[in-house]
Structure formats: structure tokens, C-alpha cells
Design a protein around this nucleic acid. Structure first.
Lengths: 146, 146
DNA sequence: CAACAAATTGGAATGATTCTAAGGTGCAAG
DNA sequence: CTTGCACCTTAGAATCATTCCAATTTGTTG
């Protein structure tokens, strides 16, 4: 009786990845993931909520938080933080840095050569074993064009 | 063996740096700064509050926040954030990275060659002009004992 | 279908930080 | 010195993002 479920625009990986963790694929999770893939501007949970609500009016903010957390757990999405601001979400899984534009407040992905990440880790003093490195630039970007 | 160096009770630079910004040197500001210099373990505002209170029992948490903010403004201290946790404060002004120990929760300074910071900035795509880079490692450090 | 587990929901609770309004403090000019 | 005034500190209220909670709802399985 309900409206037909729209074909998801994302690869079939979601349901599989969720299942791998013993989790279910739900309309909320699919839509939240879809929203992240569709507009990759590092939205906050609130922004995701706003984008998701028109398509699923009954969804709650708590659920958006839950879904985002789930996606992060499944390694489908990365959480990005900048100076105590609200957490932002990013579906780019390749190792990359973030550039925060101080003027516009926008966050841009910056691809860096894998070698640089390796070099950084190699600079650690003995006894320090890093399994992740986060690199954040702050400054001005010339083109505000996406 | 290295000699333990005692932080001067009244760092000469403080009053001057404050005056440069048209601000006053107060007992609260001096003590907060002193506490940061004395135990450089990246304390949170709450932790600074706890360390400062015995010496100045009337001090309020709001004042600690104010003092810390003032010190950051005057470039005497840096604010360090890690994944939405409470802001931590660091009197190390040289460019350096932070290593976050996932086991102990401790934050360690990691000195990196200046050239690496330069190299990172040079990797930015054209049009991106960074005036700051933050590097955070996450992992395990062998020596929990300092 | 019934039972059970996983998910979702709205609202309350939490934690860090900031705001606000009301006193203090200290120096400079008279 | 005393008064003015800008700067500071203070306690508590307010804010903001996020998490927790208890009560449904939904989906799966026996």
C-alpha cells in the first residue's frame, strides 16, 4: 500500500556491509547514506537531518545520529571534526586531508600521496605506533566553486 | 642525566604579551599560565580549574575559560582538539603534531621537521592557501611511564 | 501467527562551553 | 587621595551538539 521504494542510487554495498556487521538495511540508513553520497559537502548531522526529512518525514534526529554512527562503524563513512564544531560526515574513504576555508566555512577534501602519510608515520619517535593520521589545513581557498 | 627545569613563577613574557594586546596581568591569568607551563600534559579547562583552585580558591570555572581564551589570543598557548572531546591546552609554541594514545587517553607532543610542514602545504592544489596545518596521530604508545 | 531481536522515536539528560548581569580592581586625572 | 572608567571576575543561566532512555514499531524466524 505504501509508495514504491525508490531504487537506491548507491552501490549495492550498503546492505552487504551492514549484514557483515550483523545489522539490517533500513530505509533510514539507506537514505542517510544516499544523502551523504549525493552531496559531498561534509554535512553535519543537522544538515543530513534536513536533507533526509523531506523524503522520510517521520525520521527523527536521534535516528540520523544513529544511522551516521552505524555507517561510521561499518567503515562506509568517516566522521570529521574541526575545532569543537559539530561533527561532519564524509563518504570519501581514500586517505585524504581536509582543508577548512576560514572565509566560507566550507570543508574540502585534499588528496595527498600515500607516501606522505607513510612518511609522517615514519617520523614518529620509537615506541609510538600510529594506526591513523589526521591532517587538517586551515586557510583561504580562491575558488568557492564546488 | 637531564636536570629538571623549574618553570619560573612569573614568566617574563606574560605581562608584556598581555600589555601588547591592551590587556592586564591578573593573578588568575598568571596562575593559569603557570599551571600550563608546570605540567604540560595538555589539561582540559576542568583540569586547569582543579589545579588552580587550591592556590586561588575563589577562582571560577568561567574565569579559567576566560584566561585560557586570553592566553590563546595572545599566542602564549595553543588550543588542541581531538574528536569532540573537551579542548586541551598546550604551551608548546613550536610547530608540532599531537599523538593521541588510544589506551591511556594521553596526548603527546611530537616534534616534526619544519620541512614536513612545508612539504604538506606544497601538496595543496592551486588556489588553496593554508596558514596552518594540524596533524594528529592516533594509536598506541609503548611507554605509558613518562 | 507468535516470539524475539533489532531499529526507530520523542523527549529528557548530559557535558562542554558561552553568555549575562552584577559586582570588583586598579590606574589616571583632577 | 577620590572618582571615573575600562577591564576583570564571578555565579548561574543558557546554549549547542550529542547521547541516553523507555516505549513503540518493524522485521525475522520458529
Amino acid at each position: 500500500m505504501a509508495t514504491a521504494i525508490q531504487a537506491p542510487r548507491h552501490p549495492a554495498g550498503l546492505a552487504q556491509k551492514l549484514a557483515d556487521s550483523g545489522l539490517r538495511s533500513t530505509p533510514q540508513r539507506e537514505l542517510v547514506y544516499d544523502v551523504l553520497l549525493t552531496k559531498r559537502d561534509h554535512p553535519t548531522a543537522d544538515e543530513v537531518f534536513a536533507r533526509v526529512k523531506p523524503e522520510l518525514p517521520g525520521i527523527s534526529l536521534a535516528t540520523v545520529y544513529n544511522c551516521l554512527e552505524t555507517l561510521v562503524q561499518c567503515d562506509l563513512v568517516r566522521a570529521v571534526n574541526f575545532e569543537r564544531g559539530p561533527t561532519r560526515y564524509c563518504p570519501n574513504l581514500r586517505p585524504h586531508a581536509h582543508f577548512h576555508d576560514e572565509v566560507t566555512g566550507q570543508t574540502h577534501d585534499v588528496d595527498l600521496p600515500e607516501t606522505l602519510f607513510a612518511k609522517l608515520k615514519s617520523e614518529l619517535p620509537p615506541g609510538f605506533d600510529a594506526n591513523a593520521v589526521e591532517i587538517t589545513f586551515r586557510g583561504k581557498a580562491q575558488s568557492s566553486a564546488n
